[in-house]
């Protein structure tokens, strides 16, 4: 029972982290709160599904292709939709929000709502660990989440591009003056964010069916994890997903499945009300409090 709880809580945490990572990265690097994050996730799922079922590509190829395509789409979204309103927070939010709803409801209208829509797992089968049966896909999710977190931490702390992007987010003017181009950086961060959303989609969606409302849910989950951990901190992302992951498992086990949603929505509201910079947010704290 306890091991069961520990392992499934960990899986849930990894799922949360993977879902949030793209959103958190985009916000941390360019300051854009991408309200279309959930829609990106959903779109990635359907693109992968179409590549497999219409073009007959092998699942692995289709999934890789999806990640690349979504990365390009994310960059295009910045070029076409965000660039004209860059810097006006309200317009950024409204534009991405509107785009997200448009995409999600487009899929609903086109009738992408049945049990046929699911992605194949990377590896079928399951394994028993400490008396708990767990399928390979869930283990893979934990692995991918860890690898991406490490990669991101390395990328933003030790590579020139990553440091440039972080500089951009912290002080746009100074960054501009030392030759970092803001539009290029923001485009890259949107592209990376979308690509990471699709990595999450192709890894997590095989666990169930691709349901339209995931478009809204994933965004809220990403928001909850990022807000709890602190909107621009990799460590916060890690700790935030662990706390929320286990809290959701506890709530749905002891109180009932409908409480899972209450946990992450409640987390958003409570954290924003009490400690808006989250557990590990630093830079923004001074600026945004008046």
């Amino acid at each position: 029972m306890v091991t069961n709880f520990l392992i499934y809580g960990l899986v849930n945490s990894a799922i949360l982290m993977l879902s949030a990572i793209g959103f958190s990265l985009t916000f941390g690097l360019s300051g854009v709160a991408n309200f279309a994050h959930g829609a990106m996730y959903l779109t990635a799922g359907f693109i992968a599904w179409m590549l497999i079922n219409y073009l007959g590509l092998s699942p692995l190829v289709a999934m890789l292709l999806t990640v690349v395509l979504m990365g390009i789409l994310g960059a295009l979204i910045y070029r076409i939709i965000l660039m004209p309103v860059r810097g006006i927070v309200l317009s950024e939010v409204i534009s991405t929000f509107a785009l997200g709803v448009a995409l999600i409801e487009f899929f609903r209208w086109k009738g992408f709502t049945s049990f046929d829509f699911s992605l194949p797992p990377f590896v079928k089968g399951s394994i028993e660990i400490f008396g708990v049966t767990i399928d390979y896909q869930r283990l893979i999710i934990i692995g991918i989440a860890l690898i991406i977190a490490l990669f991101l931490w390395y990328f933003t702390h030790y590579t020139n591009t990553g440091l440039a992007l972080r500089g951009m987010a912290q002080d746009e003017y100074t960054a501009l003056s030392i030759g970092i181009e803001s539009d290029w950086a923001a485009m890259l961060s949107l592209g990376l964010g979308a690509a990471l959303a699709s990595v999450a989609a192709v890894a997590i969606l095989p666990l169930g069916i691709i349901s339209i409302n995931l478009g809204y849910e994933i965004f809220l989950i990403a928001l909850a994890v990022s807000v709890l951990g602190g909107l621009e901190s990799t460590l916060g992302l890690f700790v935030g997903s662990l706390i929320l992951g286990y809290a959701m498992v506890i709530a749905s086990t002891y109180l009932g499945p409908q409480w899972g949603q209450v946990v992450y929505l409640g987390a958003i509201v409570i954290v924003l009300a009490i400690k808006p910079s989250g557990l590990f947010g630093k830079y923004k704290e001074l600026e945004e409090r008046v």
């Binding site: 958003i268 509201v269 924003l272």
Partner: peptide
């Protein structure tokens, strides 16, 4: 509680509250 903040925080909390 969120009125002491500026930026998108008011937007985020008003977005989450009705859903919650």
């Amino acid at each position: 509680p969120v009125l002491r903040l500026r930026g998108i925080y008011f937007g985020l909390i008003t977005f989450a509250l009705p859903l919650l």
